[in-house]
Amino acid sequence: GPMASDKRPRTAFTAEQLQRLKAEFQTNRYLTEQRRQSLAQELGLNESQIKIWFQNKRAK
């Protein structure tokens, strides 16, 4: 629909990254900035991508 703007492409996470994020989520529903930074480095992701993933996951 018209609401779907092309400005922010959805990140396609790899299965491996998703597995890691899910495991982290089961341990911590809320990430500290430090955890998020190390996860971002570990997974080669953007911190904001991880932050948003957690927000979306909590919203469900």
Score class of each variant (00 low, 15 high):
G1D: 15
Q41G: 07
F13M: 07
F13D: 01
R10F: 14
Q26M: 11
L39G: 00
F25G: 01
E42V: 05
D6E: 08
R29S: 06
I52M: 12
Q41D: 08
E42R: 03
Q49A: 14
E16P: 05
N56Y: 15
T27K: 12
R36Q: 10
N46C: 06
K22A: 10
R10D: 15
P9Y: 05
R8S: 15
Q55W: 13
E42N: 03
R8H: 14
L39D: 00
A12W: 15
Q55L: 09
R35A: 08
G44V: 04
F25N: 01
K7L: 12
G1C: 07
Q17K: 04
Q55R: 14
L43N: 01
I50Y: 01
D6V: 05
R35G: 06
T11G: 12
P2E: 15
R36P: 02
L21V: 01
R20Q: 04
E47R: 03
N28C: 12
D6Q: 05
K51V: 11
A15C: 12
Y30F: 09
Q34L: 09
N56W: 15
F25V: 03
F54I: 02
L21F: 02
K51S: 12
Q49S: 10
R58F: 06
L39Y: 01
L21W: 01
I52D: 06
N56F: 14
T27I: 14
A12H: 13
Q37K: 14
I50N: 00
L39M: 04
R20T: 05
A12G: 07
K60C: 12
R10P: 15
K51L: 11
R35Y: 07
T14C: 03
W53A: 02
L43A: 01
R10S: 15
Q55F: 11
R35E: 11
Q34H: 08
N28T: 06
Q26W: 06
N46E: 12
Y30N: 08
S48V: 12
L18W: 05
Q41H: 09
L18S: 05
Q55I: 10
L21S: 00
E42H: 03
M3I: 15
R20A: 07
E16Y: 13
F54M: 03
R20D: 01
T27R: 14
T27F: 12
S38P: 01
L45F: 02
A4F: 14
Y30H: 08
K22H: 13
A4G: 15
A40I: 03
K51A: 13
K7C: 15
F25M: 02
R10W: 14
K7P: 15
Q49C: 11
K57F: 07
S38R: 11
T32P: 07
Q34R: 08
T14F: 02
N46Y: 08
S48H: 11
D6S: 06
Q34M: 09
N46P: 11
Q41L: 13
A23D: 10
E24C: 03
A23G: 05
